Amino acid sequence: MSQSTEKRVNKETISKKIKDQNFINGVKAAIPIVLGYLPIGMAFGMLAVSKGLSALQATLMSIFIFAGSAQLVSIEMIASDAAVAAIVAMTFLVNLRHLLLSASLSLHLRNLPVYYYPFLGFLITDESFAVGMSKIGNQQNKHRFFFGLGLTAYLGWVSSSAIGAFLTGFINFGSSGALDFVLPAMFIVLLVMQISSKSEIIVGAFSALLSVFFALTINGSWNIILATVLASFLGVYISGSN
């Protein structure tokens, strides 16, 4: 083997090791996310089955949608026989923030083959974005790192949803309606964790009041969408005036 060929082989070997290490770093960084997904995913699976979905349908929803907040709201709307258009509109609005997350992350993932972006975009969640942005700058192959991070988080969410959905068949909740409190409690906790200013408290309280008002005055499940849109306008107005 010539010296130039040997150098080329060595470079390729080193490059492959770096790529594999970046992927492994992503997997390790996702472990806290997976641990956080475990109780929420199981709760989603149980709630979905209790609302009339089969265990397989609940699992497939996690496989193809992979958006916890949108999935949780969707099953409530499905259970209340909401219009398909309302469910689609709600999912679009709830996940609209992913456009901003993707745009920010794309600054670290330039010059990749086009086929990479749909897969990486699908794997973006609030948690994977937060962890990824805090650590991706130290990685040589940034796309390999985020792929390992996102894929591990994705598998954690799908598996925890499946566990919760299939376990529901062996658990008798009776008519206590205990699972009805899962969704409100979960979103209240997520909201409280993200509030950091008085303006956010105002917007949160305003959206809650609007949602209750529309739920009492308008038929269907449009209260969530209308409250979200109007509260967003209030949030933009407050931000612009500060």
Rank of each mutant, 00 (worst) to 15 (best):
G240W: 02
S207R: 08
A185E: 14
L56T: 14
L96E: 11
L35K: 07
I136M: 10
S175K: 09
A67R: 11
M186I: 03
V212Q: 10
V212N: 13
S159M: 14
T168M: 13
G164S: 05
L60W: 15
I87L: 13
S69H: 07
V131L: 08
F173K: 12
F147Y: 03
S50I: 00
F170I: 13
N10I: 04
A85P: 00
I224R: 10
L209G: 15
A58C: 06
D126T: 03
G148W: 14
R144V: 05
G121I: 13
F213N: 15
A29F: 08
G148L: 09
A43R: 00
V27K: 04
L53E: 06
H98L: 05
G41L: 07
G137I: 08
G137V: 09
L167R: 09
A82S: 14
L216G: 13
F145K: 02
I18V: 13
H108A: 06
G132D: 06
R110F: 12
G156L: 04
S62F: 01
Y117L: 04
A215N: 15
I225P: 06
W222P: 04
L216P: 09
R144G: 08
F187P: 13
I65R: 04
G220H: 14
F146S: 01
L230Q: 04
I24Q: 02
L96Y: 08
A29V: 01
K198S: 10
G156A: 04
S211K: 04
F187V: 12
G164W: 06
F145N: 00
S160F: 03
I224G: 11
V73S: 12
V84G: 08
V34P: 01
G132A: 00
A205T: 15
L226F: 13
G204C: 11
N111Y: 08
V158E: 02
V189L: 09
F92I: 15
N242E: 15
N141C: 02
G148Y: 10
E6L: 15
V158R: 07
A205I: 15
V84W: 12
A70Y: 05
P32E: 06
S102E: 02
S196E: 13
A208K: 05
L109V: 06
L101H: 00
A82I: 07
L38R: 00
M61E: 05
Q3N: 14
V182E: 10
A48R: 02
S241D: 10
D81G: 12
G45S: 14
L190R: 09
F206L: 13
L47F: 12
N95G: 06
L149T: 13
V203N: 03
I33Q: 07
V131Y: 03
L60S: 04
S159C: 11
L35M: 15
K7R: 11
N138I: 14
I163V: 13
